[in-house]
Design a protein around this nucleic acid. Sequence first.
DNA 1: TATAATTAATTGACATATCAAATATAATTA
DNA 2: TAATTATATTTGATATGTCAATTAATTATA
Lengths: 153, 153
Amino acid sequence: MSINYIRMKKKTPTGTVLYTIEQTIKEYRKICQKNIQKIVSDITVDQCLVLIILNDNSNISQIEMARLIFKDNASVTRIIELMVKKDYLLREENELDKRKSKLVITEKGLHTIDLLTPVFNLNRKTALDGLSAEEIEQLDRILHKIILNCKTS
Amino acid sequence: MSINYIRMKKKTPTGTVLYTIEQTIKEYRKICQKNIQKIVSDITVDQCLVLIILNDNSNISQIEMARLIFKDNASVTRIIELMVKKDYLLREENELDKRKSKLVITEKGLHTIDLLTPVFNLNRKTALDGLSAEEIEQLDRILHKIILNCKTS
DNA sequence: TATAATTAATTGACATATCAAATATAATTA
DNA sequence: TAATTATATTTGATATGTCAATTAATTATA
């Protein structure tokens, strides 16, 4: 009762579950970045994600990439730009559709994937430690409800 | 290579729920921004959040603000800077501790709070539409488990 | 087939995220 | 009290987020 009373007094927006979602993803990204940097110093979480997605889905366009990682096209353009500069990726000509760019992982990129895939798995395991499969399914289901609510509003 | 093969086949929530969390918060922020801009054109979701938090917790420092809205101190400095420029806030001297700044909401800021508080409530209601109180509690509980996992890792 | 509409990617402008270093003030301790 | 340590904020550098406008290539339509 007393705890709830205290909570009730400060009914700020950040006390709601929607900000808990925001807080969660921020904490998760922090441990991801921390663990990644232990192994590879010049790469970000997002850049690493792009590598892994690209490895699993070769020949996807930037727009498809954007959809897969829930980012804006402009963001993807810039992320890839930086990755090309750092020799993780190459842009080649797409013969079939010259609007699209063909993204190719370099040797350095492939090596980085090998180094960091276990880190990704560890991060996930750490974050979800102690959660039952049922809880994870519940979480997933509820989140998708919220996503749908937002999309159809 | 084999690790990626395994990962590709595993499209269970365990492998993806953390991305679903990210997706959820992005979709939510989109409808927030959209609805806010209908009413007030020159303010962002975060700036609006700062106003509301400040209104509920007068005399808080920037560091406390940062903690409340789950942001970095540097981000808060810049958000407030912009809000001062746009006449939503004033910075005054804090006599008791000159390191801290005293944040004061202007008339324009107060008026904006009146305009946008209902929008915040609507956004929340929209996002959580159709979720039972039990589901929201489950969501909150599971997310806090993840936060704890990350913080203590 | 020429024109219009669509699509993929880029660019510009601005806001926010993150880390590290710097600054100024306050509190603690030798 | 002087020197050290801690705290609050700022600043710089770099990455990403978002929106709108632009460019270039493709597809659809009159």
